[in-house]
């Protein structure tokens, strides 16, 4: 379908995302880009690198470290900082550290609230950012399908889904009052398949956790959880088995279900995805807490 005069879908998506990133850099005084180390963050980082080349990124990256991320994610993150030379800010909730919050002990709801949602709010308040770039996509979940690309947040970081600004053409309203902010989602219109195809095409580095490998896993709350360190309760750890698994999303290891897989290369992952019958968030425990869970979390300030 592509002629010289018409860009492929990936090139159109890429151009749209770059336009959005440049709009943020041009219009806001103190922007920041969320960096979660996952595949979507990797694509965003790649797009930002393209948008501002030959210069450096005009904004820092922010990683909210819940202290329960896979070890490899942290290594990968620090490696990318070295290779690309961007500014990275890492924040963990000090109150959560004092309380020794653990998803195994306190449950996913409390852990996510304190170590993720509250930690994010702290980091944003501390930084005083007026624009926060995030990697959410509209195909991930139903309530995301309605969120704007430039999504307004009040002083308390809250989202009002029923009172969103109209967003037309590629003209984004970046005007805000003091204390308010905007969450910007440059890859809103990408699907999971687009992301993988783009990673493959552009040879974007991603953590190897996405690729299948023998890993020690235990059955925990209906999913397979990897034993990433000895904070997994001992009675659980005793049941660990080596299995060929990979991860479709990356987050806190106790809350990220592994899937059985033999896909150890990118094309194999994409093939598996095409034939798969369950959507990406299935392995993510936090969405299942209650019906409309994501919508509620988002209203409260979760990404």
């Amino acid at each position: 379908m592509m002629t010289k005069e018409r860009l492929t879908h990936l090139k159109q998506l890429e151009a749209e995302s770059i336009h959005i990133l440049r709009e943020v850099a041009a219009e806001f005084t103190n922007p920041v880009m969320m960096y979660s180390v996952g595949k979507d963050s990797s694509v965003m980082l790649h797009l930002a690198m393209k948008a501002f080349a030959p210069g450096k990124l005009p904004f820092p990256l922010l990683h909210v470290d819940t202290l329960w991320k896979f070890k490899e994610m942290i290594e990968f993150r620090d490696q990318r900082v070295k290779e690309l030379g961007f500014d990275l800010i890492v924040h963990s909730n000090p109150e959560g550290i004092d309380m020794d919050i653990s998803p195994f002990e306190h449950g996913s709801k409390v852990h996510t609230d304190i170590m993720k949602t509250q930690a994010l709010k702290q980091a944003l308040d501390k930084g005083g950012y007026d624009a926060i770039i995030g990697g959410a996509r509209r195909d991930e979940e139903k309530s995301r399908a309605k969120e704007r690309i430039f999504s307004f947040r009040d002083k308390h970081h809250r989202w009002d889904p029923k009172n969103q600004r109209p967003e037309l053409w590629n003209v984004y309203n970046t005007a805000i009052q003091k204390g308010e902010s905007v969450r910007v989602f440059p890859i809103s219109n990408w699907t999971e398949l687009d992301i993988w195809q783009y990673i493959y095409l552009e040879e974007i580095p991603i953590p190897s956790l996405y690729l299948a490998k023998k890993r020690p896993v235990v059955e925990y709350e209906g999913t397979k959880v990897m034993v990433d360190d000895d904070r997994v309760p001992e009675e659980l750890r005793k049941t660990a088995k080596e299995e060929m698994v990979r991860f479709r999303t990356l987050g806190c290891y106790p809350l990220t279900g592994a899937i059985e897989s033999t896909a150890s290369t990118l094309p194999e992952i994409i093939k598996e995805m095409l034939l798969s019958t369950s959507s990406e968030r299935e392995g993510r425990l936090i969405d299942k807490d209650q019906e409309g869970a994501m919508e509620l979390k988002k209203i409260e300030g979760y990404f």
Binding site: M1, M2, R6, T8, H9, L10, Q12, L13, Q197, Y200, L201, P267, E268, I270, K271, L274
Partner: peptide, 15 residues
């Protein structure tokens, strides 16, 4: 073949 498939799907149009 998946590689062949990917080649083909890299060149999609968007509407």
């Amino acid at each position: 073949d998946i590689i062949e498939y990917l080649k083909k799907h890299e060149n999609k149009d968007m509407l």
